[in-house]
Amino acid sequence: MKTVIKTTNLEKVYNSSVAPVKAVNQVNLEFKEGEFTAIVGPSGSGKTTFLNLIGGLDKPTRGNVIIDDTDISSMKESQLFDFRLKHIGFVFQAYNLIPVLTAVENVSFVMLLQNRPKEEMEKRAKEMLEQVGLSDKINVRPNKLSGGQQQRVAVARALASKPDFVLADEPTANLDTESAFNLLDIMSKLNKEENITLIFSTHDQRVIDRARRVITLVDGAVSKDEYFDK
């Protein structure tokens, strides 16, 4: 299988007033196409920082992040904007939909930034909303949707542009059990059907149980990297 992401000697150091803190410490990992990976670990273990580094939202202090043979750690900020737009999908803990746009407009938004043709955008956005079970909420704004529904729209938005991989930062943290299972079912299905690489940071056991690969971070370093046959 093709390697989508590769990190080599990845480090992120924050300078605090007391002493420098290594949020990510010497991480060497590879993520293959179509993997469903959960990054787990206690609070402060560096999960979010690691996701930010591989998502091009933050720059490493040392080491490299190579995505599709491109080293993004040396990219300029403006190049990173383009790179994220073309290659990465994001799902955030707090849904983070654009409140003034309807569900279908939110899902189309990334494709709009990519300057895709209008008809293609609308077709794909409606298709994605149907896949996440929200075809009846196309023209509804986020404030009229439940938390679970908003997160499903966020998933549809992240996947609509067919990115190389999707990073989800604790996507189920704010959801009740039923909504969380529903979301995970949808993501698992899309992972299999569209062969999209999914990387979650989580300490939600429900997510961990669905993942085929679980990487445990402790103090910024990889302490375990396990594969499960699911």
Binding site: G55, L57, S78, F81, D82, R84, L85, K86, F90, F92, N96, I98, F109, V110, L113, Q114, R157
Partner: peptide, 8 residues
């Protein structure tokens, strides 16, 4: 979020 998802 807008900037994270690639809005320049």
């Amino acid at each position: 979020v807008l900037m994270a998802i690639g809005m320049k």
